[in-house]
Amino acid sequence: MDPLIFGFLLSDGLINGALYALVALALVLVFAVTRAILIPLGEWVLFAPLTQAMLLEGKLPGTVWLSAGLLLIWAGLDRRRGRTPLWLFLAALGVVGVGFLGRSVPALAFLAALLVVLPIGPASFRIFFEPLPGASVLVYLILAVGLHFVFQGLGLAFFGPEQFRLPALWPGEAALAGLPVPRQGILLILAAAVLMVLLYLFFRRSLYGKALRAAAVNRIGARLAGISVREAGRVAFLLATGIGALAGLLVAPLSNASYEMGFLLGLKGFVAAIVAGLVSYPLAVAGGVLVGVLESFSSFFASAYKEAIVFALLLPVLAWRSVSSRVLEEEE
């Protein structure tokens, strides 16, 4: 194989790998704190660029109302518990305001899309996951699969079946060792690297991060130590949605965006997260890069079997993990 093609495939693999790595980071984050496998994340990843595309066309996308609506339901649930969640009403109002602002000012559409999609994650946790505290991994998985179908259906209703094209945040190509690489791809790789380091430091070094992890490892112990398990879940979902939405916004200019791309994206991110055993952030990034590069090279050599090759990667990884790692006991 000529070195130029090798270089192109490698850079393409690294860019896609960064995308899968970001999704994997979000999945690992949510799993580490709540024991939920967040399948609808793929949909949320695409909601962000699709929202941006609609805003740029001067339309107000359905995600604005979805996001505000979920916040209001959240507020309603809290009210029944005897609290007056004024800030939730303000947040719902803020989402609608941001939507209108993003629609009229194209330069702010990127940021507006991110802010509009952001509350969907924590609100979904509050509405769907929180009423089932301490349920088994399987129950959360079934719930997540159900939510995936709901959000995919909403995606079709909001954005239609066609793809959208988005302007690059950093247009043009940069020459790396004589190889033209899209600058937008470099941004994606940088985002994955920076977020990996931040998440690693946050969960290893900061007290708040440690508290979040404690909430997952032992719910009762964490509550005895004064840690709110509910809040831990919401924060995890918020961070995951943010990472996912950012990944979606960064990759969309490279590849166009449609509502149905999310699931496959989430699944590949999940393969990467499995490589990391659903616990390690650096390994999740490594897994994402592995999946991306493998996909890139297999699409060159055997494009018809590309998907099969990527998902077949799960088999040796699972076999290796089952013999090498110690089993993490389910608590409670």
């Binding site: 393409d12 890139s296 699409s299 494009s303």
Partner: peptide, 17 residues
């Protein structure tokens, strides 16, 4: 004779081939 999925985010490999 190459294939890709309508949901793919990259077809660089196929195009290079």
């Amino acid at each position: 004779s190459e294939r890709y999925s309508p949901k793919d985010t990259s077809v660089t490999g196929q195009v290079l081939k």
